[in-house]
Design a protein around this nucleic acid. Structure first.
Length: 276
DNA sequence: GGTCGGCCCTGCGCGC
DNA sequence: TGCGCGCAGGGCCGAC
C-alpha cells in the first residue's frame, strides 16, 4: 500500500520523466478516478488538454504535478494506485483508470485495482494545493514541528496507533510504518495519546522519520504487484519490516511471537514483550 | 472540536 | 470445481 516512501519514489520518477512535458490529451476510463471533480470526467480531461507540467510536489501520501495555468493535478494512489511512465505503446492494463498523453508520444498511466485512488484539479495555496489544507505537514517538511506534534499527541484520547493514521496530525504514515515505528519506540499501539510521555512522544516521531527515511532509501515497501515505482520496479523495504505482516514469527529484538490484533478497525502488529 | 463507525472497491485465500 | 464469504485499508462523511 503506497505510503510516504512509495509516493515519494513515484513522484521522483514522474517528475524526472514529465517536467517540461506538454499534455496533448487526457483520457478517463473510470469516472471514479476523478470523482472529486464535480463537473465530471469529460470536463476534467478538457481542462488538462494543452497544459505543461511545471514540476511536482508532495505532502504525506498526496502528490501533485504543477500545471502552467497555476493549478495542480493532485494524485492520491489510495491502496493500489500506480503511476507508470509509458514509452513503448504497450496494450492498456486491465486496471488502467486514466491516462495522459504528451506531445512527444509518451504517456502517464494511472493504474488502480481497488479504485481508492483519485486525480483532482486544485488551485494552489502557496506551495500546496488548496484541497490539501486539512492535511498536516509530513516529517520531511520544514513546517513540521516535532515538539508541537508531540504536544498535540498528548492531548488526544485515542490510541496512539489510531493517531499515527490521522493525516490531520501527521501525514504520510499508513498502517505499515505506524506499526514499525511503534515497535521501534517500544510503545503499545493501544496506549492513549494522552498517556504517552513527552519524551516518548518525541522518540516515536523520531522513529517515524527514521523508518520512512530507510524505506525511501530502498524504494519503499512492495508485498505484491500492488506497489511498483513509475518504471514498474518493486521496492525492497519489505525484508526490513520487523512486525508488519510478521504475525506468528519471532520478534527480531526478543524472540517473542509477533501478535496481530485490531485497533480502530485496522490490523495492528506488535511484540507483546517489547511493547508493554 | 474530537471521536467513531460505515462506506467505497477489487482480488485473493479459505472453507464448505 | 465452484461458490460464498471475509479480509485488506485511505480518506471522507454523517452522527454523536
Amino acid at each position: 500500500m503506497p505510503e510516504l516512501p512509495e509516493v515519494e519514489t513515484v513522484r521522483r520518477g514522474v517528475d524526472a520523466a514529465f517536467t517540461g512535458g506538454r499534455i496533448s490529451a487526457a483520457e478517463i476510463f473510470n469516472p471514479r478516478a476523478v470523482r472529486r471533480h464535480a463537473p465530471g470526467a469529460d470536463d476534467f480531461a478538457a481542462n488538462l488538454r494543452g497544459l505543461e507540467i511545471t514540476g511536482s510536489g508532495r505532502r504525506g501520501k498526496f502528490m501533485w504535478l504543477g500545471l502552467d495555468d497555476g493549478r495542480a493535478l493532485v494524485c492520491h494512489l489510495g491502496m493500489s494506485g500506480q503511476l507508470h511512465v509509458v514509452t513503448d505503446g504497450r496494450e492498456p492494463h486491465r486496471h488502467l483508470r486514466a491516462r495522459l498523453r504528451f506531445t512527444d508520444d509518451r504517456e502517464l498511466w494511472f493504474i488502480d485495482q481497488r479504485t481508492f485512488g483519485f486525480w483532482e484539479l486544485a488551485d494552489m495555496d502557496g506551495a500546496v494545493p488548496k484541497t490539501l489544507g486539512h492535511i498536516a505537514p509530513d516529517v520531511f517538511e520544514p513546517e513540521f514541528d516535532a515538539a508541537a506534534s508531540a504536544a498535540k499527541l498528548r492531548t488526544r484520547r485515542i490510541e496512539v496507533k489510531k493517531a499515527l493514521l490521522d493525516q490531520g496530525w501527521i501525514s504520510g504514515v499508513g498502517n505499515i510504518y505506524a506499526d514499525e515505528a511503534l515497535w521501534r519506540a517500544k510503545l503499545p499501539g493501544k496506549r492513549l495519546g494522552e498517556r504517552v510521555s513527552k519524551a516518548k512522544s518525541l522518540e516515536l516521531l523520531g522513529h517515524v522519520k527514521d523508518v520512512l527515511t530507510e524505506s525511501l532509501a530502498v524504494g519503499g515497501t512492495s508485498f505484491d504487484e500492488l506497489y511498483v515505482d513509475a518504471r514498474g520496479e518493486a521496492g525492497y523495504f519489505a525484508r526490513e519490516l520487523a512486525v508488519y505482516g510478521r504475525a506468528g514469527h519471532p520478534c527480531k529484538n526478543c524472540g517473542t511471537t509477533i501478535t496481530k490484533t485490531v485497533i480502530g478497525d485496522r490490523s495492528h502488529h506488535y511484540c507483546p514483550q517489547c511493547q508493554r
